[in-house]
Design a protein around this nucleic acid. Structure first.
Lengths: 229, 229
DNA sequence: CGCCGGCGTTAAGAAAGTGTTAAGTCCGTT
DNA sequence: AACGGACTTAACACTTTCTTAACGCCGGCG
């Protein structure tokens, strides 16, 4: 049931009802939904979250949607799908010229929204941040989903890869057992710490030159694991 | 009069009046307009002209617009802007999933049309990737829709060809099951992974010298497939 | 010292995913 | 109506991955 191409989507809308509706539709399609009630919060959230797509209501209380777009486009190319009650042509033209990827007028159908979203995603194959992280002689290429050690490619199973990515995204910091288990195995497996022991062993065997005295994949006894350089 | 962003645009529409209208609007914006009255002619024209964008009326007399899209997408990634009198959601979803870049319902405003066109052009900054890619002793010619292995031409069915092209366009990267299924079979078949198994088997049998230990068409268990050189 | 809890390691069984083949269905052609 | 090609569906053997359990190690503590 785990969706491997789950996308992070940020919904910026002041109306609670619309946000709920969008959440239902989008989560139904297997995406992760985050909400922001105002434009200002939206921009902050967008920076923190690095979503794969933003859905923006033009009629925000604190900031005109077009201003949001303008500011957002100063530093991000993440696609924005604009939602609006206004049918006027001028609004559409303005939003599209400010860099919106698409424009939907309310009321909209769930099917159309999802189709437009797919269309947007299809032509935007992860333009975001550098997808490659490295430590020691190991290099992770997130966009290709591959891991190299030196010049040799290393094959990781999907759990191993997920585990490595999770640690890498918190590089230097401890990630607790529960955090890891919740992220990768789901909230029903939060106390199965033995999963971690065997999968960490596998990872170290594949990535460390001396698996019994690990230099990068470290243990914090009783707490969790962390990855250092 | 000389527009530095002058684009070649192909209008495929059976109604003379609409064609005239589009010509006026588009030429007014400094583009070069070409017309085709039927789907069949449209495909030929598109091949000859290599336009920067196609504007397609869904209601063609000789060929459903969706069929046009499907055929066109077999060998071209040129953006298609769909025009339709039908407001139904199903039509929109279908067209967008077949690879249309945008969908406008008639009647439309000149301003909106031009804005959508600009939006389409902006995110399609000359993606003119070479129509021929190769790996190992295999060569794919997308413009001719042919595949050779060494000196011998290999016949691929349309699904096989689509699958190969998809993997080739992400060379070296893992393409997930869902991605493939969504692109080729549509979003309603995202979990029919058994399609992939049999078609991959066919592809390997036709393209790999040792189909049981593939060297180019690789499997990532639980994730997807990828093509490497 | 001997016990205990947390950890690493290994191996075997269970589960999930994959390759292969063949039969069934659909569709356009003759 | 019969044929052929392409796609779908089903069945089975096989491989990879995940889970589970057993055991040994280490350091802290009574």
């Amino acid at each position: 049931m785990d969706n491997p191409d789950k996308k992070r989507i940020l919904v910026v809308d002041d109306e609670r009802q619309i946000r709920k509706l969008l959440r239902v539709i989008l989560e139904g399609a297997g995406h992760a939904v985050h909400e922001a009630e105002t434009g200002t919060v939206g921009l902050v959230e967008a920076a923190a979250l690095q979503p794969d797509c933003v859905i923006l209501d033009l009629g925000l209380p604190d900031m005109d949607g077009c201003v949001f777009l303008e500011k957002y486009r100063e530093w991000s190319k993440t696609p924005v799908l604009v939602l609006s009650a206004r049918h006027g042509e001028d609004d559409k033209v303005k939003a599209l010229d400010l860099g919106a990827e698409d424009y939907l007028t309310k009321p909209f159908g769930a099917g159309e929204l999802l189709a437009r979203l797919r269309s947007v995603m299809r032509r935007n194959p992860h333009v975001a941040e550098s997808p490659v992280v490295s430590f020691g002689d190991v290099e992770i290429d997130r966009s290709a989903r591959t891991v190299r050690r030196g010049t040799q490619e290393v094959h990781l199973t999907s759990k191993e890869y997920a585990l490595l990515c999770l640690l890498a995204s918190h590089r230097g910091k401890v990630v607790t057992h529960r955090q890891i288990l919740r992220e990768i195995w789901g909230p029903n497996s939060e106390d199965q710490t033995h999963y971690l022991r065997v999968h960490m062993a596998h990872l170290r065997k594949k990535l460390e030159s001396t698996p019994d005295t690990p230099r990068h994949l470290l243990t914090d006894a009783g707490v969790g694991y962390r990855l250092v350089d």
